[in-house]
Design a protein around this nucleic acid. Sequence first.
DNA 1: GATTGCTGGTAGCATGTTGCAACTAGGAGG
DNA 2: CCTCCTAGTTGCAACATGCTACCAGCAATC
Lengths: 157, 157
Amino acid sequence: MVKRTRLDDSDCPVARSVDTIGDWWSLLIVRDAFDGSRRFGQFQRSLGVAKNILAARLRALVAAGIFEVVPAADGSAYQEYVLTPKGRDLFPVIVALRQWGETHSFTPGEPHSRLVDRLTGRPLAPLRVEADDGRAVEPGDTVVIKVDRESPRAKSG
Amino acid sequence: MVKRTRLDDSDCPVARSVDTIGDWWSLLIVRDAFDGSRRFGQFQRSLGVAKNILAARLRALVAAGIFEVVPAADGSAYQEYVLTPKGRDLFPVIVALRQWGETHSFTPGEPHSRLVDRLTGRPLAPLRVEADDGRAVEPGDTVVIKVDRESPRAKSG
DNA sequence: GATTGCTGGTAGCATGTTGCAACTAGGAGG
DNA sequence: CCTCCTAGTTGCAACATGCTACCAGCAATC
């Protein structure tokens, strides 16, 4: 690329999200954070990523407000990377990717990791896209509109 | 990179998903497909992506079973790219990214596109991660386990 | 308190990937 | 038949990624 084509000025939220976290490692770093990783070395060993890449990604994720740097919890002079609320809000994204991968990228019976409810040990329910009244919504039931100026309340009912 | 670090043999479904669709353009192509794009030129104009990149991405997405190539619906001799069921299953991923982007990547009142229920014109409900009994689940309520050999029924359930 | 080891990074280099532009091949329309 | 449109492919330049080596600060040990 002459310049990786910035998408951060697109008016599509998907494009901006992809621009922020749409590279190979960022989502996996976030996934590891959900899984308990906090220290540079934890991410590095868990992901097997080169340290310069990890350092660059963490810097970008901190700059994007997804992680924040805090003093280490164990009293040492090191620092840790913890998810901000914005970062924690990526949980549905990770779960969606995980469920899609479980369904379509593994043969039945193939070993894989699984995200389960800590209380029951059972897998989570499949994510369900719903209208605001709870009806299940499929791709064809939706339409993309352009909101030129956010109106305080929905205009069409 | 010496070689973009394949993740397709990871035992984590998130990693495999990211390996398949985790580049800058694939998810946006899928998003456009949900939005009605079917032809090469439609994707190209809508995304502003270089044609060689688009061609490579579409090829990869077809190879991954996310798109399939079909004869054009308008009777012309050209072909079209339509989502397979596997591709349509990415809907929650797109919705999750869209909702995250709407929440965190736009200032209030900033113009943006929005995905709404075709029937009511109202935005969709926020995605909710739930346990299999319907309880809302947050990141801390979950744990990642390793499934070495898929058992036909849950063992601790 | 100097040395050794660990943690957390940076620097240099080779290579892969992206992107732009130019070019090509076949279909559509007049 | 000539021209434009669609759907790509190819070549080159720039940037990103990955590996390895290197470096700085903390920690524990002697």
